[in-house]
Design a binder for these strands. Structure first.
Lengths: 197, 197
DNA sequence: CCTGTAAATTGATGTATGGTAAGAAATGAA
DNA sequence: TTCATTTCTTACCATACATCAATTTACAGG
């Protein structure tokens, strides 16, 4: 149980087994069914969710009621609304489960305690955050620089497994286009690919 | 000299003056003229730039040679290509000065040393990174959810001062549209505003 | 198996934004 | 000042993507 989580936090943290048990003693875990909410807009939330197994998403809803997928979180990812978790503001986003998902609730205290104990964990945690930031800039670059088709191709390349686990309309939403447009992009690609032969 | 930097790192870090002097002894500083490069694509870079005074930008260049502004960095902001600085990959972006800018070179070692010395700095640093991530998700949400006009309005609201310091075509680029489109958006807004009276 | 519902596709049409080109306005150097 | 260069604007047309509506396909529950 919680193998991913344990590996995640101990592989780089030089934490002994006893320390691990002690530190994680009061961590909460929960399993969510598909479609079940972890967080809704305007709710408060004071932790980050670590996905031990399964798949979550966060999304916003605009004035016209349309959903926009902000993030997917498969195994070993963190997902959270930082406006709420770090800044005590009511959440701007929804988070729900796409698949049945086992989640670990991680709060900032937990990170701080581990950081105090282990220099290598500190550095690892820093590394993770910088990596996250880097990743987000790449996505922003895609959104401001490239067409729907290129964004789609880059998505497949980066997340081949998500293609199989996520309905197409959610991927469209993540890419910032409508499901109809994604369907047409795929049709065009298929046609061109066929002509290649 | 370096007032912003000092305030930034000591206000929340409970660092004494002696400690500050010691820790920052080997930090490098440099002043860049407008249009001068701090980093070019494919170069390596092993630090983050802290803007003490002035204004920087990072941008990518696509296959057709068009620039896309990834980030603006006015006073008290960090700017970097993390792919290069944290992951030893050649840079994907360019960074240059918009105004004459005084920069402090901060490397990961510096952060690690301060983190080791001060718990409150650790937490502050963490806070900064989470805030950065939160900010990037907001921008992504804007890009996938809202029209050019709404993105522009939200930009003015968030960065009223940048409006005055940055040429319009760079703002267009940051918003993911062409300068011509931004010009039209502004015209429409002005016309509608006039009709209101 | 049938049946109802959500997802995906497709076509017709609309709209926002892009591209090009020209001129006006601003900026900067001589 | 004048000239040169960049930025901004405007007009006209092109295109990518959105919207709406109608099927088709996939799929879960009885």
């Amino acid at each position: 149980m919680l193998e991913n989580f344990r590996a995640y936090f101990t592989s780089k943290a030089e934490i002994t087994d006893e320390q691990y048990v002690k530190i994680t003693a009061d961590l909460k875990t929960k399993v969510y069914k598909p479609q079940q909410y972890l967080l809704r807009k305007d709710e408060m939330c004071n932790h980050t969710f670590f996905v031990e197994k399964g798949l979550l998403r966060s999304y916003s809803v605009d004035e016209t009621g349309k959903e926009h997928v902000i993030q997917f979180a498969p195994e070993n990812w963190f997902i959270s609304d930082r406006s709420s978790a770090c800044f005590n503001e009511p959440s701007e986003y929804f988070i729900d489960a796409i698949e049945e998902t086992r989640v670990v609730f991680v709060d900032q205290q937990f990170i701080q305690r581990l950081s105090a104990q282990s220099e290598s964990f500190r550095n690892y945690n820093d590394f993770i955050l910088h990596n996250h930031i880097r990743f987000l800039y790449k996505r922003i670059n895609m959104l401001i620089s490239h067409s729907a088709e290129i964004r789609y191709l880059s998505f497949i390349k980066l997340y081949p497994d998500l293609m199989l686990r996520v309905p197409q309309w959610m991927i469209a939403s993540y890419l910032g286009i409508t499901p109809e447009s994604l369907s047409r992009v795929r049709k065009d690609l298929a046609k061109r690919h066929a002509n290649m032969k």
